[in-house]
Amino acid sequence: MVRPSRNKRPNYFDRAAPWLLPAAPWIIGILVLVSWQAACVIFALPEFILPRPSEIIAVLITMAGPIWFHASETLLTTSVGFALSVAFGLLMGIAVGSFRFVYAGFYPLLIGFNSVPKVALVPILVVWFGIGRVPAALTAFLMSFFPIVVNVATGLATVEPELEDVLRSLGAKKRDLIMKVGLPRSLPYFFASLKIAITLAFVGSVISESIASSRGIGTLMVRAASDFRVSLVFAGLVVTAAMGVAMYGGFALLERHMTAWAIRPNERR
């Protein structure tokens, strides 16, 4: 009798040590930094062309005060703009996804609007609201609401017609359909869009700040560039990226928590 072998055929992906997966982003990040540093040293690049990572880190530490002064502003305007776009995106998404008339009427308009380069809108916002926080928050909002609208609407519009029949034959109203089926169903789409939207919101606020503000990472970078303090420009980029990653991670966590039903256990980590 042949006994089934205990040793399963080693699987390449299973073989990786369990600590390797969470460590992977750090390993890759450090590898990139080291090669960057090496390239700068080998080709003897001057700081104002491409600063070395070590120089950027040094600036991050020595300039921590001013950087935080500007970064906190960007964080504030981005959060306000993003909150606006979540509220507006949800409402608009529900309307577009639930009512065909709204869809037919607004969707082309939304696509058209989203094709407009938002940088071009900043001067108009400045004319309306003056220089400072308001245009930055609004630019963040304008950059980021579109994916939320599209995703929420998709979730609502793709409800199985049979499920709709089941509920309507029980006497369900439109509101029941949206609350009981449409919205829960579109939650995974919604969270996916939040992760895109938050990064876009940062792009929006930094663009606006770099054009028309006296505070914020965008301002910091423009001023630093005009002084040829390229290390400081890069420090600004790093801080923006870090804030983006942190927010993204936050929403990814929230998503995992809220829409666990959409993730099969074999995909759960």
């Binding site: 049979e162 499920l163 309507r168 034959s169 169903r185």
Partner: peptide, 18 residues
């Protein structure tokens, strides 16, 4: 109009996954 005394079932079970 939609009757309210009906139960329906289809080929697809159409359960709510959440």
């Amino acid at each position: 109009g939609p009757l309210k005394i009906i139960g329906m079932a289809f080929q697809n079970p159409t359960l709510l996954p959440w």
